[in-house]
Design a protein around this nucleic acid. Structure first.
Lengths: 154, 154
DNA sequence: CATCACGTAACATCATATGATACATGAAAC
DNA sequence: GTTTCATGTATCATATGATGTTACGTGATG
């Protein structure tokens, strides 16, 4: 199974946006993440609908963060993406007639539900502001400059 | 991503084996799970190496459980499968040079590690004997007979 | 009105779990 | 001993879903 990296990707993009003053175009983000502008737009669509970011067309257009980073948790972002599947494992058959499979499903489902609750709880406890602060701490520790990281090398 | 259903499948097979006296062939299991014998053998290979089941070739051959069900936890089975990936989400880039991505990865990894620990803990707390007991309880509750379920309808 | 950038659909690609086939090996039955 | 059965395993086919790509429409700026 190919692992879904949209959450990772969109968080990356958001933190980069936070470092820049004006709007950032999909094109710029795509280069930074070595992917395609259409991919960026696709991922950001949910965030726009959720009101976390704004997009403007035309000259000087692009994406801007529309809310304070301290008011956005990882869980908010996850939900804005459409709550993608968290687990790589699932039941062979949902709603099976076989009682054995029902027993198996019940046991596995219980464990996965607990794990999901824990994940969402942890996601809900981390704001983008905290992530950004962590980033800045790493930057100080590494001695690198904002610009280098913002431009993402290239 | 397609979800991995090997754990679900192998548990299903094991509980069915527990209901039968003699060895069960891959062919029989495959029919019960509407899949292919080779798939069964592939899944069971890890369990055989771990010593949880035994396989015999030739006439009257097939698979038998080699250990008390109370001595096998879901975690044991999961590990015998080769500890397949639990999560459907991953980092866009492991070991990134970008400090932003490092901060993002650190946050996500922490949450996923906690969730993994919880899952393994829950898996380790459930034995196949308990699962089997749950199955029997469901059977009593439903009024069905062992044979019907064992043969898996067809 | 030409250019820029998003919005979105449609299609291609790639990775991976699963399904299917084939053949070798070993054990039991005859 | 030869046939039959069943596993062991490699190899290939298929299906699914995330991601990459292209194309074109829309609206805003200069």
């Amino acid at each position: 199974m190919k692992r879904d990296s949209r959450l990772s990707g969109v968080l990356h993009v958001l933190l980069h946006m936070a470092e820049v003053d004006g709007p950032v175009t999909s094109e710029t983000m795509a280069q930074a993440m070595s992917t395609n502008p259409a991919v960026i737009r696709r991922i950001m669509a949910g965030l726009r609908e959720a009101g976390f970011v704004r997009s403007e067309k035309g000259h000087g257009g692009g994406w801007t963060i529309a809310r304070n980073l301290a008011a956005i948790t990882l869980r908010d972002v996850y939900v804005a993406l459409g709550t993608p599947e968290l687990f790589a494992m699932g039941n062979r058959t949902e709603a099976p007639g076989c009682l054995v499979e029902q027993a198996v499903n019940a046991a596995l489902d219980g464990a996965f539900r607990e794990a999901e609750a824990l994940l969402l709880d942890r996601f809900g406890a981390v704001t983008l502001a905290e992530l950004s602060a962590d980033f800045h701490a790493r930057m100080v520790a590494s001695g690198k400059t904002i610009d280098l990281e913002t431009v993402h090398a290239v």
